[in-house]
Amino acid sequence: MEEIEFNNVTFIINEKTPLEKTILNDVSFKMEKGKIYSFLGASNSGKTAIADLINALIVPTYGSVKIGNFINDGRRIKNVNKLRFDTGYVFKNPYDMFFNKTVKQEIAFGMKYFNYKVKKKSLRINDALKLVGLDESYLKLNPLRLTLVDAKKVALACTLIYNPSILILDEFTNGLNYSDKQDLLHLLKLLKNKYNKTIILLSKDTSFCYEIADYFYLMHLTKIVKEGSREILHDEELLKSINLEVPKIVSFVNVCKKKKHDIDYYTNIHDLIKGVYRDVF
């Protein structure tokens, strides 16, 4: 899988009826391989539609999407299963992904259909669970009866088991506590540095994405308002106008700069404290 490219994509549902609604309006960008991208926007701004378009679950009304060698523009895609096999997509509501009776059937679902011949299937399933921080006791449980955090982890294990090269996480950090978020940070860094995967985070949690992502897209209503690296999140007024929370580190450093103390924009709290200590003394 190589680059992802969106060319003037517009997506409208229920066209020519009274319930017509535009979800994406003339969106264009290019993504490279091996980085962590982050789409930040309030709800109803079209983030899930971008993930659906990359996974070829929906078809753009105008424009085209290019994912590696596949093109999604309304025509029938040959070998579309190969594309889906290579992009792991975790839905916003993890219970939407579950339809089997046990967690083991859930994780091992596609293996038969892909002719994914693995000698030790159970070992691979246990490895996938270990990556997300769960153990073998979860294999016999009913996935619809899991708690929210466990359901999110099982959904992530279901996608990681095929070793996809693109990973899409849709609002994954809603409802996770501090230690789960740190585990997720370590996992994403491992996937990016060791396995060279492209990771796309769709989220409202600006503090989490500020720490880990390389490139940001800010979305509002149906368009991409601004894109760039970390600097675009330093603009407080822009973030407030599109209904996003300013990352906590950024708001603190902005107040420092207003009172004319020279502190850099660090990414995590430990570096920030060292910087402040150096400046105070």
Binding site: N55, L57, R76, M97
Partner: peptide
């Protein structure tokens, strides 16, 4: 519909 969408995202597409 939701189940077929979940199946499709893991590679088995009903409508195709």
């Amino acid at each position: 519909y939701k189940t077929f969408k979940a199946c499709a995202s893991r590679g088995i597409d009903y409508y195709n």
